[in-house]
Amino acid sequence: MKIATWNVNSLNVRKPQVLIWLAQQQPTILGLQELKQINEAIDGSEFTALGYQILLNGQKTYNGVALVYQSALGEPSDVVYDIPGLEDPQRRVIAATFGDLRVINAYVVNGESIESEKYRYKLNWLEVFSKWLAAEMAQHSNLVVMGDFNIAPTDADVYDPERFKDAVLCSQPERDHFNRFLEMGFTDALNRFSSEEGNFTWWDYRGGGYRRNHGLRIDHILVSPAVQAKAIACHVDKEPRGWERPSDHAPVVLTLA
């Protein structure tokens, strides 16, 4: 079984690439972020033709998340489209249970800059998100949380730590939240399986970021202990980042026995 996450930075633009990647890699479940489309604007028939179904929580212009899953899995249960109890117009979360596997796909707030209101919104959002994940962990032994977290957990996850020191994505309060996930019992799957230096998931379009490997590791797959026991590999598939008109993110892929 392969579970993957990919911030596509507009499904309208990147849909052909997503379909090619699905056909090539055949993940069991794929979480998408930054759809930038409402549900009604997304034609699911092309996914169906490849043997997939899609759960959507879209939003025009910004945000939006989806879970694409193999039709053979059957209809998922306990589908959640936003963080329960959080009144938020931004579509950032979708979750579903496939058999005994609970999957949460999230697009965490970027935060813009540490001086901005968006940064305070990010920290508040992470606080609520953390409490929800703790409740989900207590309820589901087989739990995968994936997505664009917009947090580089350590200096090793940044191409130039000095440049990003105390900046958004790398500030200590953000990293503290990520560490809280690990303290709950989650394993950072990519960090567990890859010690490769410069193993980034995002590269700026500007300044030849991808060509120079000036990137950050901000896309993550977190797994509960029961899922970690089945994990055999996790890697960044950098190939789509080199395609024409790519997303600025690359997929992260977890393989389970």
Score class of each variant (00 low, 15 high):
G207V: 03
N63P: 03
D148P: 04
I218Q: 00
Q59F: 09
G58K: 01
T154F: 10
I104S: 03
A134L: 12
S195W: 06
G242P: 00
R217H: 05
A152Q: 12
S224H: 00
E183D: 15
D100L: 11
V223R: 00
S10F: 09
V144S: 01
R163T: 07
W203P: 01
E197L: 11
F186K: 02
E75T: 15
I104M: 14
R102N: 05
A167L: 10
C234Q: 00
L67P: 04
T48W: 07
R206S: 08
D82W: 04
L86T: 02
D100C: 02
P27N: 10
Q17P: 01
E87L: 10
L55H: 14
R91S: 03
P89E: 09
A231F: 05
W202Q: 00
Q24I: 10
N110L: 08
N191W: 02
V223P: 04
S195F: 11
A96E: 02
Q17K: 08
P89D: 09
R91Y: 08
L35E: 10
K36P: 03
W125S: 03
V128E: 03
V223H: 03
L30C: 05
T201S: 13
Q33I: 01
I218L: 12
L86A: 03
P225W: 15
G209M: 10
R102E: 00
M1Q: 05
Q139C: 14
L50E: 13
G64F: 01
V252E: 07
N199E: 12
R163E: 12
D248R: 10
M146S: 02
Q17T: 08
A96K: 01
E244I: 12
F98S: 10
P84L: 05
Q70A: 14
A72Y: 05
Y52F: 07
I3R: 07
I83V: 15
H177K: 12
F164G: 03
F164M: 03
V168Y: 05
L133Q: 12
L256R: 03
N213G: 09
V223M: 05
T187M: 01
N110I: 08
R180S: 09
L32F: 07
E40H: 07
N9P: 06
D248T: 08
N213Q: 12
M184K: 01
R217P: 04
L126D: 09
H249R: 06
S141K: 15
I83Q: 05
I42C: 13
G44F: 00
W6R: 02
V144Y: 01
S71Q: 13
Q228G: 08
I3L: 13
R217Y: 06
E34I: 06
Q37S: 15
A95V: 04
E244P: 05
S130L: 13
L222Q: 01
Y159C: 08
Q172K: 04
M137T: 03
N110F: 15
K118M: 09
P16T: 06
I20M: 13
R120G: 04
L22K: 09
A72Q: 14
L254Q: 00
I42H: 09
Y119L: 11
P27A: 14
A189N: 04
K131R: 12
W6F: 14
I83A: 02
A250Y: 00
Y119T: 15
P84T: 13
A233C: 06
G185L: 10
F186H: 03
A226C: 09
G58T: 04
G147R: 00
F47D: 09
V103I: 13
E112F: 07
